[in-house]
Amino acid sequence: MSVGLLLVAWELYANYSGIKPTILPAPSRVFEQAILNREALVDNAIPTIRATLIGFAFSLGAAFALSMLVDFFQPLRRALFPVFIVSQTLPLVAIAPLVVLWFGFGLTPKIVLVALVTFFPMLVALVQGYEATEAEIGQMLRAMGAGRWRVFMLARLPSALPYFFAGLRISITYAVVGAIFAEYAGAAKGLGIYMLNAKNNFRPDLVLAAVGVSAALTLVLFGLTVLLQRLAMPWERAAGRQAAGKGPQA
């Protein structure tokens, strides 16, 4: 709704203010050009999607492994977290060209950058999630005779799920931005390099078309995480449906 209004206002302004389409193209023109250039856009979106997903998968794997390590060996947490926090303060603009310099123009630097920007939020989400385990559940499990591993698998891991998905929703948007940044710094193909070339050719309409594609991509990935959460946590929705007036109430 609000997006629609914004587009209408933008359309009106671009058409009637006398501004040149090479400075601010109307959304209708962007859309038209996007259709015309759809092959090139799709062609460039694929490497971006690939980099996003592979980088994110690496990041997830690493975050999981490390979160468990940190959960089992608390001192590690104090030793490692400062390093990760510093890794989050590095400006992407500065680090992206360096990563490209080190790893070349292929897929690797994109994966590295995507992993770099998404790893820490995922790690923090998981570690916090484990910690959110209800103390009494842990106490009860230990009284039942469960060891640390059992407690982790039966209680701490499932307790972390809501945190995990909250982290996932944030990280997936970072991931797309990270991939595009990496391509911007140097790539053969991809939405990032496509934007850069379009800008250099004075085609803001194509830049915006690529932006539209990346936004759509982010939205789709975001939607997937929401769907995944619903599937993975059926009890959340069940909690909404009360067992109203059914059976004995005591």
Partner: peptide
Amino acid sequence: DHGRHFAFMPQRDALMPW
């Protein structure tokens, strides 16, 4: 062997929501 003798019920129900 504590676990063998006692079944413990904590203060809140400690049911696992999942």
